[in-house]
Amino acid sequence: MSGATSEPLLRVEELTVTFDGPRGDVDVVRELSFALEPGGSLGIVGESGSGKSMTSLAVLGLLPAGARRTGRISLSGRELTALTERQLRRVRGDRVAMVFQDPLSSLNPYYTVGAQIAEAYRAHRQRATRREARRVAVEAMERVHIDDAARRVDHYPHQFSGGMRQRVMIAMALCTEPDLLIADEPTTALDVTVQAQILRLLTEVRAETGAGLVLITHDLAVVSEMTDEVLVMRQGECVERATAERLFSDPRHPYTRALLDAVPRLDDEVGELRSVDEGGAR
């Protein structure tokens, strides 16, 4: 999208996220490095607690209180860790937008969805009028296929279904035309049928805008369809990084194999669901 092709869109080097625990510091992410080319897609998979979400929050400096990060994070060659809060604020939502896991709790129940989308737009287009921001909100809602967007723009989050709320979140992320979309478990809180719709929407939106995607999930099937490259995390560390294709055909790390084995299959003869530990990760 922007500038020289030699710079990756996102480069993370030796990222470590540390929490102050009651019994000393705990590293939830340890020396993680990866890069994403402009328009590229990367899946980060792992179990709960493997540090995937913290990685995504660390990129935009949104870590919860009590967490610290070290390492380098650069966006198109610009070092994000060196930015002031004010400078970082201009990157958030504008060049890098996020979609979170639970769309109900991630939308403020007190404001209409239109107001919340318009707010994201106006945060970065200071000269935009209210009317213009509203029009952008309606357009963004139309782009994510919310029917009757002109009327729905004035509805509150609780008046939408789970899938529609996630569409609103995606519309909110899109309205500023970001270069990078970070989706943190975007389908985990949704029904299986709705999951597929949201994933299709994300693919469609990326094809339109050319935005890069970091997709965080615990679902291997999702990354196999959605991303070119996959990074497998375990206990804060990267255990394997490969193209999606190779990862599934030829998993190198025992943990990755265990993860793949744990995916239930219809033709499985064992009859019992395998957990990762039984699968021989160690």
Partner: peptide, 27 residues
Amino acid sequence: LEENYVRTARAKGLPGRLVIRRHALRP
């Protein structure tokens, strides 16, 4: 302030005082 929607507001790039005034105070 620990609600997910406050995190969303920050992720949108709203200035800190707007995050507090609009998204934290009213609820």
